[in-house]
């Protein structure tokens, strides 16, 4: 049988098994809740600010923003401000100018902001959990239901079966990321009303000698930023998916497979907190999941990490897991 139709068959099986629809359901419910919560918090903050300043109308934001912009521009005239400070003033001024030009109150939330925040918040735990849910039964279910014996009787080599499962998984990981983007966009657009995809976002932090270097910061549009975060999300999904596939080959029951993956995901995160000064922790996959933090400039729990290092570690884990999966699957005995 051709690999193309084998992969198609695997994709079809996963979608028909309704696992993917469970994921869609979880996404809709959770994103809906997050969006509502965010909306509620923003409204409350705004009314609190208005109360504190003694103004009835939050429309005064223009005046305040103008004042802030004026302050920043005057600070730029000072030739004795260090270069690092100058860069951050420039990007902040650029943001304020955007808000004024587009007539957007900086304290309100946009759909685009929600989209990138959602990925930033889910990349290290929620997204891996979804992928585990998707991938953990990919081989073990065949063992549980006994269909694996039927598969083996076909004149298809074992490696081809696993390859088709692997490729199907790789495709569906991307589908999950796309679903996240579409659902987040749809729900947040309904909740927050405006897109805000051209808003400048501050990024470009670098880690130099274990410290955050802001001398090269710049702005990119929120749309580009979303592309970056969701692409990095795919790398995480890719890596976690391969590990889940390996576990699924190693154990027979789907429940055990999900359990092993979840406990290593959560346990590894705890471990990295307790022994964070031990150098080996930086090679744990858990520590390297927060890829988007390199964009937003949030500090890492373990020093010495960079975007390329973290991606490298994740891909190595994926490669090792794939090799183990193939090795075991090709030679294991299928009993009972």
């Amino acid at each position: 049988m051709k690999l193309y139709s084998l992969v198609g068959n695997e994709v079809f099986k996963i979608i028909m098994k309704k696992r993917l629809w469970v994921i869609v359901g979880i996404l809709i419910i959770l994103i809906g809740l997050f969006a509502y919560g965010e909306h509620y918090t923003r409204e409350r903050t705004q009314s609190q600010i208005a109360e504190r300043l003694g103004i009835d109308d939050v429309d005064d934001w223009r005046e305040i923003t103008n004042q802030q912009l004026l302050d920043l521009e005057r600070r730029l005239d000072n030739p004795f401000i260090p270069e690092e400070g100058r860069a951050s003033i420039q990007v902040r001024a650029e943001q304020l100018r955007y808000y004024l030009a587009e007539d957007i109150n900086p304290t309100t939330f946009s759909a685009a902001q929600f989209m990138s925040n959602f990925m930033e918040q889910s990349i290290f735990l929620f997204l891996p959990l979804l992928i585990i849910l998707l991938a953990s039964d990919i081989v073990s279910k065949e063992s549980t239901t006994g269909t694996i014996k039927l598969l083996m009787t076909r004149p298809v080599p074992r490696w081809k079966i696993l390859t088709s499962k692997l490729l199907a998984l790789t495709i569906l990981e991307m589908i999950v990321i796309l679903l996240m983007a579409v659902i987040a966009l749809g729900i947040s657009y309904i909740t927050f009303g405006h897109g805000g995809f051209r808003e400048p976002v501050i990024t470009g932090f670098r880690v130099v000698n274990g410290e955050l270097d802001a001398s090269n910061i710049q702005t990119v549009s929120r749309g580009t930023y979303i592309f970056m975060t969701y692409s990095l999300g795919y790398i995480v999904a890719f890596s976690i998916g391969k590990m889940a596939l390996m576990v699924s080959v190693l154990v027979k029951s789907t429940a055990a497979s999900i359990g092993i993956m979840m406990s290593s995901l959560i346990g590894g995160t705890f471990l990295s907190f307790f022994i964070s000064d031990w150098e080996i922790t930086r090679y744990l996959f858990n520590v390297n999941l927060r890829l988007t933090d390199f964009l937003s400039g949030d500090l890492q729990p373990v020093e010495g990490l960079s975007l390329s290092f973290s991606i490298g570690v994740l891909l190595l884990w994926a490669l090792a897991a794939t090799l183990v999966a193939f090795g075991v699957f090709s030679y294991k005995d299928i009993l009972d």
């Binding site: 198609g8 994709v11 979608i15 495709i171 569906l172 991307m174 589908i175 796309l178 990024t203 470009g204 932090f205 670098r206 710049q218 990119v220 580009t224 592309f227 970056m228 975060t229 969701y230 692409s231 990095l232 795919y234 790398i235 890829l291 390199f294 964009l295 960079s306 975007l307 390329s308």
Partner: peptide
Amino acid sequence: TLVSVIIAVPFFIFGILQAFQVT
């Protein structure tokens, strides 16, 4: 599924390259 993934791939590559360039 296949077509949507093929369409999406260039965007993902763009995103990753951008992320590298920025950091």
